[in-house]
Structure formats: structure tokens, C-alpha cells
Nucleic acid binder design. Structure first.
Lengths: 117, 117
DNA sequence: TGCAATACCTAAAAACATTAGGTATATTAC
DNA sequence: GTAATATACCTAATGTTTTTAGGTATTGCA
């Protein structure tokens, strides 16, 4: 990911979610889709993406199909049965995290209870 | 942090925000406060906290005061002028991140536009 | 013809957290 | 009274994930 370092740890969740939504995707496609969806906010670097895909595959969450398109090879990834369960876990985990974070970082009471007539 | 690995990268933001809200805190206090505020969801480990505090201090965001309480030393941290600016940046960055993440991971259109009569 | 885009990949380094220790005092429980 | 828990600081080795910085090769556009 090129942007800030906050995205650390969330890459596999993003990959799994996208594959859950789209059925199957190839690596390069994932980088482009994320750029689109986040309006350029988040740019996944290939140095992070490919190792992450390989790890998810090794863990049994993803399966691979090769396809030749325009004389260029594409490696399509899709969720395994196990991967489908993993998406649910990861998304719940992420929701929990986002909530916890919002709770922690929202303005303190002293400033939210101010009365401005 | 004990929980999952999602918190990676957000520790310094949490520290700065807490110090912004509370004026000054010592390390151990920070771990306890975070545990309270997140109802046990997030447990900052000391192995993560202390190096992070030292780094923020080295970067000029925090300043230190020692105090002896009950025969035990406390190292109180507070924001420097520079640190006060940094809190704002970090919080904006984090808000951006949370929004981006929510946008990315919310249910896809195909499932939200379903019509159930 | 040369550069950007598409498409895959890896290895070294950096960043950050976990794990697992260490020191020391105070308080609570048995 | 003594052992465990809480308070309070710290570090070093390890592990995970990301960045940085390359590499290969084809296609399409200027």
C-alpha cells in the first residue's frame, strides 16, 4: 500500500472481501479496483499484494486458475470454501476494530457536551 | 496490543490523542486507560508502548517529567507544541482511513439494492 | 522507438508489534 | 509472613507485514 501506514494488517481482509464480492479476480485487477473504489486514497503496491495472495493461497483460503488473455498470462484467484468462512471472520474482526477505533478517537466528552446558545 | 494485528500503525495516534485529551499521562496509565475505554477490546502491550513513547519523544512530539509517587517513579508524558499539531494530523489521517475502510468493506451494491417484497 | 500500461514476480530493508524476559516497590490474599 | 497480584519502568529477539527497488515480458499509444 502506498498511502500511509495505517492500512497495515488490513490487506488480506481487503483481498478476501473483493474476491467475495466479485467471484474471481487477478492480482493486477485488484490493485486497480482498490484504487477506483477508494478514489486513489489507497494504492496497493505489488510488493505487498503478491506475497499476500501467495500466503492466502498457501493457507487454503484462495484457489488459482490460469488464463491466457491477449498473449498475457492472468492468474485468477477465487475463494475456497474455507476462504468463504474466512471472509466473514475477517470482516467481523475489521468492523470490531473500526468501532473500537472510532470509540477511542472520537472527541472527548468535555468538548461534545459544550452548550453553544 | 494484544488483540489482533489490525491495530498496527495506530498506536502512536492513540497515544497522542489520549495525551491531547488528558494533558499528561504516564505509560502504565495509558495501558490501563485504553483497556477501560475499549472495554478490554484493546490491550496495549508494554513492549509496544514504551518504544513508541520513546520514539514520539525523540521526534519532538512529547516531553517528559519525572515524578516520585509512593516511592515509585512515574514518567509523565505530555504533548509539545509540535505534538499538538501532530495530533490533529494523525486524527485526520485516521478519520480518512476509517472512512476509506468503511467504504471498501461495506456490503456491495448487489446485496444492498435487493428488493424483498 | 520509446514510454505507459498491463501482468506477473522477488529480495533486501524498514517498521511495528509480540513474546518473553528483567528490575523493583506496594498491596492484597491466604 | 509470604506469595501472588498490581504498579511502574525497561529491553532484546523474533515475527509479520509493508516499502522500496528492482526484474521479466507483452501490448498499445504518441
Amino acid at each position: 500500500m502506498s498511502n500511509k501506514k495505517l492500512y497495515r494488517g488490513s490487506l488480506s481482509t481487503i483481498i478476501l472481501k473483493l474476491l467475495g464480492d466479485n467471484g474471481r479476480m487477478y492480482g493486477y485487477e485488484i490493485t486497480q479496483r482498490v484504487k477506483e473504489l477508494t478514489k486513489g486514497e489507497l494504492k496497493i503496491t505489488e510488493g505487498a499484494l503478491y506475497p499476500s495472495l501467495h500466503k492466502l493461497e498457501a493457507e487454503g483460503h484462495l484457489q488459482v486458475e490460469f488464463e491466457q488473455v491477449n498473449n498475457r498470462m492472468r492468474k485468477y484467484y477465487s475463494l475456497t470454501e474455507d476462504g468463504t468462512k474466512e471472509v466473514v471472520n475477517k470482516l467481523l474482526e475489521m468492523e470490531m476494530f473500526l468501532q473500537t477505533m472510532q470509540g477511542l478517537l472520537q472527541p472527548p466528552l468535555s468538548s461534545t457536551t459544550e452548550f453553544i446558545p
